[in-house]
Nucleic acid binder design. Structure first.
Length: 493
RNA sequence: GCCGCCUUAGCUCAGUUGGUUAGAGCGCUAGAUUGUGGAUCUAGAGGUCCUCCGUUCAAUCCGGAGAGGCGGUACCA
């Protein structure tokens, strides 16, 4: 009877984020900059929904009907499975295939939005996060891939990260050539995959760790054992020679051609890399911005040619000052097979994705995020409850003049109202008690100048008595007086 | 998924060798001669000591299981 109802703990599901006004403003600014670059390259926006039929996304567990590994799924009322999209590429493939008749080809589009992954979150890894993609569908040549790389570089520059990133480029065909050279490749897809995964860990485990993974396997510090690819010493040497191939230009291409000599697919890959390198050079993108790097593999099977990723070249530390291992903040490649799930004829495609959330997170930790505090509204204090209609009228006048303004709606005294205005980051407050009302004036306080002036006082009572940074204005001149304060504070930042 | 560590107020943490009313700092909400932000002073709110089961006269504390958090590792379209 008198039991209080059981309270629900207010808690954020793990792997998800709340975003403050400040975060939203910062990410919005990032998005606007990215969009401007994509637009300049001639890409058009397109938006698809958060849900797709699970089969569209291409994820089913073979032995169960429930598609739930890694994806958030639910069953529609007609019993079809729907899933939240886990990237923006599969939905694009669906959209392209479904609207094939009416779209221009090559089809160049960009889109930005949240994607969802139902897996263990970690620092910089969320279960809902934002990506910003661009893709060219229906263009087969390396020029389309090269354009993607250059656009990624330009985007990073536009985000104010000049000199702090590098776009690393490789070609899957070269890697396939190397694998075939040691008897793997299509002949042994399972072990090939183990090799790919091992190479992908080069940055974290180094040559020695990868050597173990290519051989018998590796035991990590928690005692967990990862089975290796069981390659012989000779084969391991070849793989590491490939991933370790350094230099740029003819030096590198010579080495690569030697490693895949006699393998048609591998040689084709080297030629594509050369073609892309020539385009980068012609357009003025040096190896400080875009670099050919054989250690880039980008995990997954669906890439069929060039692959690329953006790496931040500065160290990221968390709030406690510990270094944070940040994966790539963007990447992509050519995926000629993706649309073929929907159409018989093959459709070549290439594209890339920027992890907006992850990048924002990195920039936040390094202080590079272009975030300024959101400027709050002008707050009209409520000094006398009976005079509320007067205050409301002042707010209306300010709003009609295009000024962000509000009347204090709480029930506390003046002190609390000032604290409220402070916390809202209000640039000014409007005060009218009975004294002012009788004289037909209002008191305007400049909150920015006021805070500065208050630092000169050590005694609270003195500060209150001095009432710094405020002035009296005729009631009829309210808007003009407030505008003057806003201009003095720098207006919109 | 596997391995390790952790869980007491919103946050960071004390503490109780098993015993009546579990504490601090910060933060939060307010007050200090109609009426001034920071600093200061005063007061207040805020706890299933992660949950359940067991042992015990008695469990926040001991035992077991579970959940959650953190880290590593695997996977990552």
């Amino acid at each position: 009877m008198t039991d209080t109802p059981k309270l629900i703990a207010p808690r954020l599901p793990r792997g998800f984020e709340d975003r403050s006004a400040r975060d939203i403003a910062a990410v919005d600014a990032m998005i606007a900059r990215i969009r401007a670059v994509y637009e300049r390259y001639g890409f058009d926006p397109v938006e698809t929904p958060l849900f797709e039929y699970t089969e569209t996304l291409g994820k089913f567990l073979p032995d169960t009907d429930r598609p739930n590994a890694g994806v958030f799924s639910l069953q529609d009322d007609d019993e079809q499975w729907l899933s939240l999209r886990y990237d923006l590429t599969a939905p694009l493939a669906r959209y392209f295939a479904e609207n094939f008749e009416s779209l221009p080809k090559p089809y160049r589009s960009y889109r930005q939005g949240y994607v969802f992954r139902n897996e263990k979150p970690g620092p910089g890894r969320f279960r809902q996060f934002m990506q910003f993609d661009a893709d060219t569908v229906g263009a087969a040549g390396p020029a389309a891939d090269a354009e993607m790389c250059m656009m990624m570089a330009d985007t990073m520059d536009a985000l104010g990260l000049s000199g702090q990133y590098v776009v690393r480029v490789n070609n899957r065909k070269v890697l396939d050539g190397v694998l075939e050279g040691i008897g793997l490749g299509p002949a042994d897809p399972a072990r090939s995959l183990v090799v790919l995964r091992a190479i992908d860990k080069l940055d974290r485990l180094g040559d020695d760790g990868v050597r173990q993974l290519l051989g018998k396997g590796r035991e990590d510090e928690s005692g967990d054992f990862t089975k290796g690819a069981e390659l012989g010493a000779d084969a391991i040497g070849k793989v590491l020679a490939y991933t370790g191939a350094s230099g740029q230009g003819e030096d590198l291409f010579g080495t690569l051609r030697g490693l895949v000599s006699g393998n048609a697919r591998g040689e084709e890959g080297v030629s594509e890399l050369e073609a892309m390198a020539a385009l980068f050079a012609a357009a003025g993108y040096g190896p400080d911005r875009i670099r050919i790097d054989p250690s880039v593999v980008r995990g997954l099977e669906y890439y069929t040619g060039p692959v690329f990723e953006i790496e931040l070249t500065f160290e990221v530390t968390n709030e406690k000052g510990q270094p944070v291992v940040f994966g790539s903040v963007g990447g992509g490649g050519r995926y000629d097979g993706l649309v073929s799930r929907f159409r018989k004829d093959p459709v070549p495609a290439t594209g890339f994705s920027i992890g907006v959330s992850r990048l924002a997170n990195a920039l936040k930790l390094t202080g590079n995020l272009v975030a300024s505090d959101v400027i709050g509204p002008v707050v009209v204090l409520v000094m006398d409850r009976e005079a509320i209609s007067d205050y409301q009228q002042m707010v209306a006048e300010l709003r009609n003049a295009g000024i962000r303004a509000e009347m204090y709606l709480g029930s506390s005294g003046m002190n609390a109202q000032m604290k409220y205005a402070n916390r809202r980051n209000a640039p000014a407050v409007v005060i009218q008690g009975s004294n002012e009302r009788e004289e037909g004036v209002v008191t305007i306080k400049d909150m920015v100048a006021g805070l500065e002036a208050a630092k000169a006082f050590t005694d609270n009572a003195e500060m209150k008595a001095a009432r710094p940074a405020q002035f009296s204005a005729p009631r009829t001149g309210l808007v003009e007086a407030v505008e003057r304060v806003l201009r003095a504070d720098g207006g919109a930042a």
